[in-house]
Design a protein around this nucleic acid. Structure first.
Lengths: 345, 345
DNA sequence: GTGAAAGCGCTAACAC
DNA sequence: GTGTTAGCGCTTTCAC
């Protein structure tokens, strides 16, 4: 291994001494700020090269009171929905000279709070947050009062008014439900997360409103709301499919539920129960047979809008609050177009 | 909990003034360092609460000359392989009080260099790097000389000696190739990235060595090496499958190639050509029909080992260089067990 | 047990 | 054009 007790990193003073100028002149050169004569410019630049000087960003940050860093907190960085969102945030942040601190809340409000707290103490210029359920509004308000910029993605925190980018979960799920109804289904199962998860609550609302609009009675036996990793999730799937009046079509409330359902159905060696529509697109949805019809969100677009809003606020934008809803897109691939018992045209 | 009136963040001096003690005493309380009498402890703590004081980490970092931050640079944060790796790094970093700066190199050495540079200027205690092909060893050595700790994951940079965690790409791909040979295949196609990508080069070596060990002649017509997103990738797949003596089995060099191949085959409405084995596991590999046999890496384990090595170095560990190779695991799911024309037992 | 003073490396304000 | 002086908020050193 190299460097136990090696080279000290050169500072601006070192450069100034070598170039025979003052500290401030070096600062001017490094920051391309103010006027420096051609001759000093050259000598300072060569001193910088000779010493391998690089500006210490921590010192700069302390002096300026702000940093070119933004924090991103999502539920799980390894969930494809969030990893696409994160990648998009990263690209735009980097292009604007900002670095990204990122972390996963694990849907734990305490972990989320600790992360936001630390990001803030590190002087993050702003934070993009997909708040965990149960996040305390008061703590976030304190954060705002302390001067942090904040943008919510995917879900809001009731009572905290900041720029927000959400999907139209109600409209999206209503569209997916109507799509199945249009193909003759009347008994449509819904598997989604617990209603305490904001998006799951909205999606359930969309499901019910589409049923109602079509005059189909709501049957609670057809709705399972829990995490797909919950111990009894598989059992609930079996119970619903084995009931005396089983669903002829199934809706999955998010990508994790889609995958859990498809995996479980395959393990039963049972075809998709006539029809299937999933919320969120996922890799290989088009390669399965039949292709999986989905209500696709655009996580990259969500990330892009969030980071652009944040960067504008950081730059001093004081427009009124922005509340954006992105419209999901129904992508027909086959699984959602399998006809039910009472097929319409 | 409401905020103090001021929009200004309270400092240690503010707390000291309110508590009627010196700055240093507050520092002692905040850092739980040295002895403070019970009475002062109480008054300082209540002043901290009253003002909503939180230590300014940037100032602390400047003074201490180090930060509790580690940087992670991968090819693409939204690639599942790297997102699992990143998630694992994040969890262990957070558990040790470190935050994660993360970015994607996009396989661009210039972007990678800029990121590493910035991480370093921000005082990252260490960096975990999946180096882009073409990364300049001299720049990384300069980084090391400046005192940064560095660990490579997934690939090394020739000539830069730091702790490294790699997969046994040669052994893994040899095992996958032998598996197909054992099932009677003699003409085995290989699709992988260009050999300039370290892992692709090693995997091709593993493929060739397994062929050689079995006395099967190497046929360059059966090997395509390029990015699966390369404009002519689809054309190359078609060409190989339509040749007069097509492969009876196919190997994919990574998860992106597996998905590209499966998608393309589906679009041709063509079954997997007798047999298929992919390097890297991927979501839904078990749900496809037949299930996809893979040579699975363990990205979470790779991340865990890398961050643990890094944290130990940061803590002053000076053991000799660690060079770890993780053994991939062949997971049989059906697609790799379809017999070829000359099936053995 | 506690405090005063110095200084981390930089930028802001204002000289000259 | 360039330099001087402060000081960001904290930790370190050393004195009491």
């Amino acid at each position: 291994m190299t460097t136990p007790a090696s080279r000290h990193r050169a500072t601006m003073s070192d450069v100034a001494r070598l170039a025979g100028v003052s500290l401030k002149t070096v600062s001017r050169v490094v920051n391309e700020d103010g006027y420096v004569s051609a001759a000093t410019l050259v000598s300072v630049k060569s001193a910088i090269d000779a010493l391998g000087f690089r500006r210490n960003e921590v010192a700069r940050q302390l002096r300026q009171g702000r940093t070119a860093t933004i924090g991103l907190v999502v539920e799980d960085q390894s969930d494809p929905f969030y990893s696409y969102l994160a990648r998009s945030v990263e690209d735009i942040a980097l292009a604007n000279g900002f670095l990204l601190l990122s972390a996963s809340s694990n849907e734990d409000p305490e972990r989320s709070r600790r992360i936001v707290d630390t990001f803030s103490a590190r002087g993050a210029a702003g934070i993009i947050l997909a708040p965990a359920q149960g996040t305390d509004p008061a703590l976030l308000r304190a954060e705002l009062d302390a001067g942090s910029a904040l943008v919510f993605v995917d879900r809001p925190v009731p009572g905290v008014l900041v720029d927000t980018v959400l999907a139209d979960n109600i409209g999206g799920m209503a569209a997916g439900t109507s799509h199945l109804i249009d193909h003759g289904h009347r008994r449509i199962g819904l598997f989604c997360d617990d209603a305490s998860v904001f998006t799951a609550g909205e999606r359930q609302t969309g499901y019910r409103s589409a049923l109602e609009a079509a005059g189909v009675a709501y049957d609670p036996e057809l709705v399972v709301m829990m995490s797909p990793t919950h111990p009894s999730a598989a059992e609930q799937i079996d119970r619903m499919l084995a009931s005396t009046d089983p669903p002829t079509a199934v809706l999955a409330g998010n990508n994790r539920w889609s995958i859990a359902l498809l995996r479980h159905l395959k393990s039963l060696d049972r075809a998709i129960p006539r029809a299937f529509v999933g919320f969120d697109d996922f890799e290989l949805s088009d390669v399965l047979d039949p292709g999986i019809t989905v209500i696709a969100q655009d996580p990259a677009e969500m990330g892009r809008l969030a980071v652009e809003l944040l960067l504008e606020r950081v730059a001093g934008d004081d427009r009124p609050l922005q509340q954006i809803r992105l419209t999901p897109r129904l992508i027909e691939r086959g699984s959602g177009e399998l006809s039910g018992p009472a097929a319409a045209s």
